[in-house]
Design a protein around this nucleic acid. Structure first.
Ligand code: SF4
Ligand code: SF4
Lengths: 148, 148
DNA sequence: CGATAAGAGGTATTCTGAATGCATGTTATG
DNA sequence: CATAACATGCATTCAGAATACCTCTTATCG
């Protein structure tokens, strides 16, 4: 039971940008701040751009900006969109299911309900609920001061 | 986001035994019923035996029996015990965490809460809540008639 | 216009852990 | 003592995630 690093990285990027609303941030800068691979992070950012969460501008002086208000970025929605699939067990994908009792299995319903609880909790939060300790976060992330 | 097949297989075994309280079932029989590998299922059953969910008797005439009442077998508990880990994101395991903001990350708490919602839902169900359509299940599983 | 910074996008490789198979040991029964 | 059934450990395969590269495009600046 785990989320992919893509999903977590996406959230890290958004959190970073939320604390940095005053100016653009480059992928390199964010990768350095979290100590992760720039190449890897580029894929995540492309995805976020495609989903409309960030605006990316190329060329010298380019970088990333949040494309929405933090209050508009729902964590549950983001997780649903970033995760490659939400197939808790094989029968959740009827196309590849091999379990013979799927049509009449109560467990399937119970697991589905549990997953909805999970996502439902996340749907109750937005990016605006994160970063409640901005000073400490900015310090850990070695974030440039406003205007820098 | 998915559970391992071990967890699902464990639940399948318990469901099978619950519908078959009248007599022992062999691993072979259950593997055939679900169309899965016997070798694989043996590992799952050993785990279930170790956790005290089933009694396994060896030798000719041996087989499996539920070691608890269906009402005593909680689905949330079982999932917790069968899953190799519940590390939704890397920071859930402090020993291997590399994320620098873990000590001050609000996201961690939110994800933890969501996971608790998931498990909390499952904790509300027991094996007794499954198998509400026993006739159809027994038929699909080609289960021997009572006493057979 | 040319150099350069930055993102876009595709491909290849590595790595991990799950899934599976196999071989042998142990226990109980008849 | 033959056999049926579970126990245990190890090896292998496989899928998907994670990561690394490489080339292309775009935009800015001197
Ligand atoms: S046992 Fe139920 S939940 Fe598990 S795969 Fe089969 S249908 Fe789905
Ligand atoms: S960003 Fe937060 S939730 Fe994600 S790994 Fe870091 S500490 Fe954990």
């Amino acid at each position: 039971m785990h989320l992919t690093s893509h999903t977590d990285y996406a959230l890290r990027v958004l959190l970073y940008l939320r604390l940095r609303e005053d100016g653009k941030s480059t992928i390199q800068e964010i990768a350095d701040a979290y100590g992760i691979s720039k190449n890897h992070l580029m894929k995540v950012v492309q995805r976020l751009a495609g989903l409309g969460y960030v605006d990316a501008s190329r060329g010298r002086g380019g970088g990333l900006l949040l494309a929405k208000l933090p209050e508009e970025i729902n964590l549950g929605r983001l997780v649903e969109e970033m995760e490659p699939h939400l197939d808790l067990v094989e029968c959740f994908d009827m196309k590849t299911n091999t379990c013979p009792i799927a049509p009449v299995c109560d467990l399937k319903g119970v697991l589905g309900e549990a997953q909805q609880s999970f996502l439902g909790t996340l749907l109750g939060y937005t990016l605006a609920d994160l970063g409640t300790r901005p000073q400490r976060l900015r310090k850990i992330l070695k974030m440039p001061k406003a205007g820098g």
